[in-house]
Design a protein around this nucleic acid. Sequence first.
DNA 1: TCGCCTATGGAAATCGCTTGCCGCTGGGCA
DNA 2: TGCCCAGCGGCAAGCGATTTCCATAGGCGA
Lengths: 340, 340
Amino acid sequence: MERRPARLSDVAHRAGVSVATASRALNGSARSVKESNRAVVLAAADELGYTANVAAQAVARGRHRGVTLLVKSMPNDYANPMVVGVVEAARRAGIRITLVVVGEKSADLVREVHAARAQRAEILMTIGGRTIDDRGIPDLVAALQQYEAEGGRVVMITQAGLPFDTVSYDNQAGAHDLAVELLALGYEHFAILAGYADGMTQLDRTRGFVEGLAEGGVTLGVDRIITGEFTRDGAYAATGDLLRRGIKLDAIFAVNDAMALGVLTFLRDSGERGKGIAVAGFDDIASLRDITPGLTTVHLPWDAVATEALRLAQSDRAATPRHSIIGAHVVIRESTPPRR
Amino acid sequence: MERRPARLSDVAHRAGVSVATASRALNGSARSVKESNRAVVLAAADELGYTANVAAQAVARGRHRGVTLLVKSMPNDYANPMVVGVVEAARRAGIRITLVVVGEKSADLVREVHAARAQRAEILMTIGGRTIDDRGIPDLVAALQQYEAEGGRVVMITQAGLPFDTVSYDNQAGAHDLAVELLALGYEHFAILAGYADGMTQLDRTRGFVEGLAEGGVTLGVDRIITGEFTRDGAYAATGDLLRRGIKLDAIFAVNDAMALGVLTFLRDSGERGKGIAVAGFDDIASLRDITPGLTTVHLPWDAVATEALRLAQSDRAATPRHSIIGAHVVIRESTPPRR
DNA sequence: TCGCCTATGGAAATCGCTTGCCGCTGGGCA
DNA sequence: TGCCCAGCGGCAAGCGATTTCCATAGGCGA
């Protein structure tokens, strides 16, 4: 039993070659190594149970391989499946992930970008939306551009509209399609729980839904678009307010599943269930698969998003930022039964 | 705008001191630095936006700071909240996390432990249970011991019984208490959906429940302990089998919430709901907070577990492995209404 | 047979940082 | 006044890899 893990020099020594050759044989290089040497090096490495020291490689190469994942506030149903998706995709690709959870403020994000610069991280991915009037965006963009100028690759997930490779899902089209489907089911009187007034994601979903209704000839009054907390509890409270207004209502669209759950729960608690108010959400989070009634929602393909993000990150950088939009599709369940 | 991130030597130069002094001023050290020097170094670092290169530090120190988190198969309701807990706890402590998802086989785990050795990772945490007769355990223990002998710290979460610092929650006591409470509510005829026959976690829960019943004078026949898939769908199917047997039954304990959900769903789908069969689970996963009926379960304190794990990891190593058991408490909800 | 080019091995520089060791300084004490 | 030692700065040697550069050995056409 060794006193310390094997180093490259141990492998080289055992194989009877120089460390340079051992390095070239083990950890890819443009230079070729004679087949016989390669074999003996590989054998030696295997016998010693050698694994390269990533930190040393990072220093020597001047680049830290792997993905650094910056996530805004992890314990959040919405970021969570995204992170899982990326982690899984990375595992399949044999890539290590350094996970950094940053605060909500974009200044925190900026700080971490600079840290990643210092680490000379190869790939930087961020997960998380932003608010429409975020004052910190210019700083963030500057930091990321500096990072890219130094040779890093950035891929933003969710947060579209910045000059970097981005993969997002189509919030607007998804909500649009949902509206169309609900109209087809016979609903006529809608309300939207739109979440925070300034969230880009929420805004896109709200906008898409309104457009979808408009195409079907239904105009939604602004008084039927309720802003408020982007959470289950916020939605729970908002539903109460909404019903107390006594307006005609047969369907509520909440811009995410957690909120939709709040709506459903309120309807149940208040005994309004069965009075024919349908509910739809957005995200199709796995944990809600078994609620009663099944929730009509828009499914987001987390896997596809993550896979695409990794693909972008590993491809050569394009002259202009690329933007992949992964489609989202509507899933109709019992929470929106046909009305006719 | 710099062409490359600032290095320590840049800071030292700007502050007019040697790199040694700069290093000592910035990145803690036993040696003290005169206050005036420290101030000027800090100022210089700030002006240059300096952030230490973690990889270089790792190489120089011969230790990689931070937590390396080894998780068995991430996309799994059960591991997930645990990971979130650790990630959050680490964030509060200002620690970086390297997240590695390994396969189910303990050989995969062993490989990653050796990789962590090579990285000279400071803290290694594993999340995930094991099966009772896992052939790979000796190898795993050997690898981890080697890692510790080289100065690393290991903390195992969930997987108790190995000679390393461990933090787990008390599956057996939790299930025991649950049984006691159910008896107090007036239930008499039980069945257990026990999951895989060889999972340690499931086994402990089953055992605890049986003991709790026994204390109340209820003996559970082995035919009422059903093994099978540790999943929602497995439980769904198992419930059907169970009911077809036509035995007297007023409560089903599923060893995790996902399975309990399967039971509830089956009861609903088959119209058996309302016939008075109560359901209880284990885990109290957040996403089930709003299902109907509310699920009686055993709450696991993820935060506390994660915090404790980090505390253990950062404390000095004890002569003998420590084992923290975090209590789990019963939460009674509507899925188990009082019977008398 | 000679010269040149390609394939390949190895010595040594290098990456950014920590730290052991040496040496200087100045205050306290005999 | 002289000596000792604590306090602190800096030189330089690593840490474990990669990579540049030089050297050697064949292969091949003329």
